[in-house]
Structure formats: structure tokens, C-alpha cells
């Protein structure tokens, strides 16, 4: 099993081969198409994170002490970035999700998507992931 940090380094490595923005986005779009989707019956309003531009759905559960995320979004690039976030945070304990420093996003040049002004729901999604983790920390305590 890779650590959270190793997973981030692996993604950084994958993105190092792209020297062109469009190639990078082509890869993100492919990841978006492969995102394991949230069950249709879970696409409810309480799982909806409304962005100004695009909407994101997120379901977070705990199985055997590890967090499991499924998600969907109406924009494919948003889905691709969600895929990367889930790849890093899935199967981690609530404690490591709550503490996670997702530095890989900045290193691969996608920080604009997580800026508060971008309004695509991604920043709120990360906050919701961490909030769910924190709540579960409290429950376990």
C-alpha cells in the first residue's frame, strides 16, 4: 500500500512528462471519463456542492476505518481533478484525510481550480472531504 505522500509523488511523476498545457488537460479529461461514479440514487441534494460554474456530488463513507469517496460532476475537467483527489484520499484513515496537505495540485499546475474564486465546487468538495473526516475523528474518539 502506498502512503498518501507516495500517491501524490506518483501523480507528480505522471504529469512531469507533459510540457504542453493541452496535453496535460487531455490526460485530465481521460481521467474524468474514468472516474468511478457515485451511485445514481446517491445524487441527492445533500450530496450536491453547487459551484457558480459547475456542480459536484460527493459521497463519503467509512469502511473498516478507511474513508471511501465516490463523486460526480457536470464538467469533465472537474471530474478529472476529482479523480486525482480521490486517488490520493481514498482508503486513508479519517485522521490522514483531515491532515492531508494536497501539495500535488500546486506542483502539477492545477491550483487555479482549487482557488476560492474559481467557483467550480472543487474547493468546497475538498473542505467537505476533510469535514467528514474530522466528524468521524470525533465519533471515534
Amino acid at each position: 500500500m502506498m502512503t498518501l505522500e507516495e500517491k501524490q509523488q506518483e501523480i507528480i511523476g505522471e504529469f512531469e512528462i507533459f510540457d504542453d498545457w493541452m496535453d496535460k488537460y487531455e490526460y485530465i479529461i481521460d481521467l474524468g471519463k474514468e472516474l468511478p461514479l457515485i451511485d445514481k440514487d446517491k445524487k441527492t441534494d445533500d450530496r450536491l456542492i453547487r459551484g457558480c460554474q459547475s456542480n459536484v456530488w460527493l459521497d463519503a463513507t467509512i469502511v473498516d476505518g478507511k474513508m471511501k469517496f465516490t463523486s460526480d460532476a457536470d464538467a469533465i475537467i472537474t471530474k478529472g481533478i476529482i479523480g486525482l483527489l480521490i486517488r490520493v484520499l481514498n482508503n486513508e484513515t479519517p485522521e490522514s484525510v483531515a491532515k492531508a496537505d494536497l501539495h500535488f495540485i500546486k506542483t502539477i499546475g492545477l491550483q487555479e481550480h482549487l482557488s476560492p474564486t474559481r467557483a467550480n465546487g472543487l474547493l468546497s468538495m475538498v473542505q467537505k472531504m476533510k469535514m467528514t473526516a474530522l466528524l468521524n475523528l470525533d465519533n471515534n474518539a
Binding site: 488537460y25 459547475s54 475537467i77
Partner: peptide
């Protein structure tokens, strides 16, 4: 989604608005 087109246009140096 319009957001996807806007993002890719941005990376090609073109500023449009989406939403």
C-alpha cells in the same frame, strides 16, 4: 459543459466567459 470549453480556451490563450 461550458466550463470545460472555457478552461481549454484559456489554456490556448483565449479569454472568454462561461457560466
Amino acid at each position: 459543459h461550458p466550463f470545460d470549453i472555457g478552461t481549454l480556451l484559456d489554456k490556448q490563450g483565449i479569454a472568454v466567459r462561461t457560466g
